[in-house]
């Protein structure tokens, strides 16, 4: 099991790669929204299911409805991309993208999907590009969830280790922000570690 351990160097690499990926994503969204996005330092942690639950509980407001878009990506490095926007942010996004005062629910949903699409493809593509691997995206799906209960209750859902990569996308002038989670589990963690090791070897060579 030692080979799956992440050192602070590994976490640092992941954080920096995520930072670069997020930079690209922010620029893409800034293009779409014609606005300037504030960049935040990505959070990286290795956790179990309970840890993920409590992390999400802290990051996502419990007293609001949120648009939660989940998209799977697969390949050597695979996982789940989760983007969470509060009702208000999503409505602002719909309002902006569809150029209507009161966007319909369908407008908002489509806008959220579109934003997630850009975010996930830019972030994951950039991240995997830096790790010298390719990735396949699966169609995203969005649901509106009351509170912050984003994780299914089934008992089988008991991964031992999960990597949580999360950051905030924020466009203050449009009052649009969202929480990004990239989750990957068990076997993928090992592969991710190998990819990072290669990266570190290149660097210290």
């Amino acid at each position: 099991m030692e080979s799956t351990e992440f050192s602070s160097d590994h976490l640092d690499v992941l954080r920096e790669l995520m930072n670069i990926a997020m930079g690209n994503a922010t620029a893409s969204i800034a293009d779409l929204l014609q606005a300037f996005g504030t960049m935040h330092i990505p959070h990286i942690s290795i956790s179990d299911m309970d840890g993920l639950k409590s992390y999400i509980e802290e990051a996502v407001p419990s007293d609001q409805h949120s648009y939660v878009t989940k998209q799977l990506f697969g390949g050597v490095f695979g996982g789940e991309f989760v983007f969470v926007m509060t009702n208000e942010s999503a409505a602002n996004l719909g309002h902006y993208l569809y150029d209507v005062d009161v966007p319909s629910d369908a407008d908002i949903l489509d806008a959220v999907i579109e934003l997630t699409n850009i975010l996930s493809s830019t972030i994951i593509s950039r991240l995997t590009e830096e790790l010298n691997t390719k990735v396949q995206f699966f169609p995203p799906s969005t649901e509106i969830i009351s509170g912050n209960n984003l994780i299914s209750q089934e008992e089988t859902l008991n991964y031992h280790r999960i990597i949580i990569v999360s950051t905030v996308m924020e466009f203050q002038s449009h009052k649009i922000s969202g929480q990004i989670f990239i989750l990957t589990k068990d076997g993928m963690i090992q592969r991710l570690r190998e990819l990072i090791d290669q990266k570190l070897e290149e660097l210290y060579a």
Binding site: S28, D105, A106, L109, D110, V112, I113, E114, N117, I118, S121, T122, S125, F137, P139, P140, S141, T142, E143
Partner: peptide, 11 residues
Amino acid sequence: LNTPTFYDASL
């Protein structure tokens, strides 16, 4: 982005 985009399948 040279990447696929999707329509929301749920609406």
